[in-house]
Measured scan of single mutants.
Amino acid sequence: SGWQYDTQCSLAGVGIEMGDWQEVWDENTGCYYYWNTQTNEVTWELPQYLATQVQGLQHYQP
């Protein structure tokens, strides 16, 4: 899939279920990364769990 979410945008106002994931701001890069509080996994790309929800939002315009 060529769909890419801009990680400089916060998910805070989007209104999706974050589940075990937390969004963390990284000052050095000026982007958010994502931290799974259960598994301690850290990812710079939007986790599939969140990406599926964001893509499903009608009002979200990339």
Rank of each mutant, 00 (worst) to 15 (best):
residue 45 E to S: 10
residue 47 P to I: 00
residue 30 G to C: 08
residue 18 M to Q: 01
residue 44 W to I: 03
residue 2 G to Y: 15
residue 39 T to W: 03
residue 28 N to Y: 07
residue 20 D to R: 12
residue 43 T to I: 01
residue 11 L to H: 03
residue 58 Q to G: 11
residue 34 Y to W: 04
residue 26 D to K: 05
residue 25 W to H: 07
residue 39 T to Y: 02
residue 33 Y to Q: 04
residue 31 C to K: 13
residue 14 V to G: 14
residue 24 V to T: 12
residue 5 Y to L: 04
residue 9 C to A: 14
residue 3 W to L: 12
residue 47 P to L: 00
residue 41 E to I: 06
residue 14 V to T: 11
residue 46 L to W: 03
residue 38 Q to T: 15
residue 2 G to R: 10
residue 19 G to E: 04
residue 3 W to C: 10
residue 35 W to T: 15
residue 58 Q to A: 12
residue 49 Y to T: 12
residue 8 Q to H: 13
residue 60 Y to P: 14
residue 49 Y to C: 11
residue 18 M to E: 03
residue 24 V to I: 04
residue 6 D to F: 03
residue 14 V to E: 12
residue 43 T to D: 11
residue 32 Y to P: 04
residue 25 W to S: 06
residue 38 Q to G: 11
residue 4 Q to S: 12
residue 47 P to G: 00
residue 61 Q to D: 12
residue 11 L to R: 01
residue 62 P to S: 13
residue 48 Q to F: 06
residue 24 V to P: 00
residue 62 P to G: 12
residue 24 V to N: 07
residue 21 W to H: 06
residue 5 Y to H: 11
residue 43 T to E: 11
residue 29 T to R: 14
residue 17 E to K: 13
residue 4 Q to C: 11
residue 7 T to Y: 08
residue 14 V to I: 13
residue 44 W to K: 13
residue 30 G to S: 13
residue 5 Y to D: 03
residue 28 N to R: 11
residue 58 Q to N: 14
residue 47 P to T: 00
residue 25 W to I: 07
residue 33 Y to E: 04
residue 34 Y to D: 00
residue 5 Y to F: 10
residue 62 P to I: 07
residue 41 E to H: 03
residue 19 G to W: 00
residue 5 Y to R: 08
residue 17 E to D: 15
residue 59 H to I: 13
residue 23 E to P: 01
residue 34 Y to I: 04
residue 34 Y to M: 00
residue 49 Y to W: 07
residue 47 P to H: 00
residue 3 W to S: 14
residue 18 M to Y: 03
residue 2 G to M: 15
residue 51 A to Q: 03
residue 7 T to R: 11
residue 20 D to I: 02
residue 6 D to S: 05
residue 8 Q to E: 14
residue 62 P to M: 15
residue 27 E to T: 08
residue 41 E to Y: 07
residue 59 H to D: 15
residue 57 L to D: 11
residue 10 S to R: 05
residue 51 A to C: 09
residue 1 S to E: 13
residue 29 T to N: 11
residue 20 D to V: 07
residue 22 Q to Y: 02
residue 59 H to L: 11
residue 31 C to F: 14
residue 55 Q to D: 12
residue 29 T to S: 14
residue 22 Q to T: 09
residue 26 D to N: 11
residue 45 E to A: 08
residue 15 G to S: 10
residue 58 Q to F: 08
residue 27 E to F: 06
residue 31 C to A: 13
residue 4 Q to V: 15
residue 34 Y to A: 00
residue 12 A to G: 14
residue 5 Y to C: 02
residue 4 Q to N: 15
residue 52 T to G: 13
residue 22 Q to G: 07
residue 32 Y to H: 09
residue 13 G to N: 04
residue 25 W to M: 10
residue 2 G to E: 15
residue 21 W to R: 01
residue 30 G to L: 04
residue 25 W to L: 10
residue 56 G to M: 05
residue 32 Y to Q: 00
residue 32 Y to T: 01
residue 4 Q to I: 15
residue 56 G to S: 12
residue 28 N to M: 06
residue 23 E to D: 04
residue 49 Y to V: 10
residue 27 E to N: 10
residue 44 W to R: 13
residue 36 N to F: 01
residue 33 Y to H: 09
residue 31 C to D: 04
residue 16 I to G: 01
residue 19 G to Q: 05
residue 7 T to S: 12
residue 51 A to T: 06
residue 12 A to Q: 10
residue 28 N to F: 05
residue 4 Q to M: 15
residue 25 W to R: 06
residue 35 W to V: 10
residue 47 P to A: 00
residue 17 E to H: 10
residue 10 S to L: 02
residue 60 Y to H: 14
residue 47 P to C: 00
residue 16 I to C: 05
residue 41 E to S: 05
residue 55 Q to H: 03
residue 24 V to H: 09
residue 13 G to A: 07
residue 48 Q to Y: 15
residue 35 W to N: 12
residue 23 E to K: 02
residue 27 E to Y: 06
residue 18 M to D: 00
residue 15 G to E: 08
residue 56 G to F: 04
residue 52 T to A: 14
residue 55 Q to G: 07
residue 52 T to R: 13
residue 41 E to N: 05
residue 55 Q to F: 12
residue 45 E to M: 05
residue 45 E to Y: 03
residue 52 T to Y: 07
residue 37 T to N: 09
residue 26 D to Y: 06
residue 14 V to C: 11
residue 21 W to Y: 11
residue 56 G to E: 15
residue 24 V to R: 09
residue 46 L to Y: 11
residue 46 L to G: 01
residue 26 D to W: 07
residue 43 T to R: 07
residue 48 Q to L: 13
residue 12 A to K: 09
residue 14 V to N: 11
residue 39 T to A: 04
residue 15 G to H: 03
residue 2 G to V: 10
residue 21 W to N: 00
residue 27 E to P: 05
residue 38 Q to L: 09
residue 59 H to K: 15
residue 48 Q to M: 14
residue 20 D to F: 15
residue 46 L to I: 07
residue 46 L to M: 07
residue 51 A to M: 07
residue 20 D to E: 09
residue 51 A to H: 06
residue 48 Q to H: 09
residue 50 L to R: 00
residue 50 L to C: 04
residue 46 L to F: 04
residue 17 E to V: 07
residue 26 D to M: 10
residue 20 D to H: 11
residue 32 Y to I: 06
residue 24 V to K: 15
residue 44 W to M: 07
residue 20 D to N: 07
residue 61 Q to Y: 06
residue 44 W to P: 08
residue 2 G to Q: 13
residue 16 I to H: 01
residue 19 G to K: 08
residue 17 E to C: 05
residue 44 W to Y: 14
residue 7 T to Q: 12
residue 22 Q to E: 13
residue 43 T to V: 10
residue 25 W to G: 03
residue 54 V to H: 01
residue 6 D to T: 09
residue 25 W to Y: 08
residue 42 V to L: 08
residue 46 L to K: 02
residue 27 E to V: 05
residue 7 T to C: 13
residue 2 G to A: 12
residue 38 Q to N: 07
residue 47 P to D: 00
residue 6 D to G: 09
residue 30 G to N: 09
residue 12 A to P: 04
residue 43 T to S: 12
residue 16 I to P: 01
residue 55 Q to I: 06
residue 59 H to A: 13
residue 41 E to Q: 13
residue 57 L to W: 05
residue 9 C to Q: 13
residue 24 V to E: 08
residue 30 G to R: 14
residue 23 E to Y: 02
residue 2 G to N: 15
residue 61 Q to L: 10
residue 36 N to P: 00
residue 5 Y to V: 03
residue 9 C to Y: 10
residue 48 Q to P: 15
residue 52 T to P: 03
residue 1 S to W: 11
residue 32 Y to D: 00
residue 5 Y to T: 06
residue 27 E to Q: 09
residue 24 V to L: 11
residue 57 L to E: 10
residue 50 L to N: 00
residue 34 Y to S: 00
residue 8 Q to N: 12
residue 17 E to S: 09
residue 44 W to N: 14
residue 6 D to V: 00
residue 9 C to E: 14
residue 52 T to Q: 08
residue 23 E to V: 00
residue 26 D to T: 08
residue 51 A to L: 06
residue 3 W to N: 15
residue 14 V to Q: 14
residue 38 Q to S: 12
residue 37 T to S: 13
residue 14 V to S: 09
residue 16 I to F: 08
residue 31 C to R: 15
residue 8 Q to L: 05
residue 8 Q to P: 03
residue 10 S to T: 10
residue 41 E to A: 10
residue 35 W to D: 09
residue 48 Q to T: 13
residue 40 N to W: 05
residue 56 G to W: 09
residue 5 Y to S: 06
residue 24 V to S: 07
residue 47 P to Q: 00
residue 21 W to E: 00
residue 18 M to T: 10
residue 18 M to P: 07
residue 49 Y to N: 09
residue 45 E to H: 05
residue 3 W to M: 13
residue 4 Q to W: 07
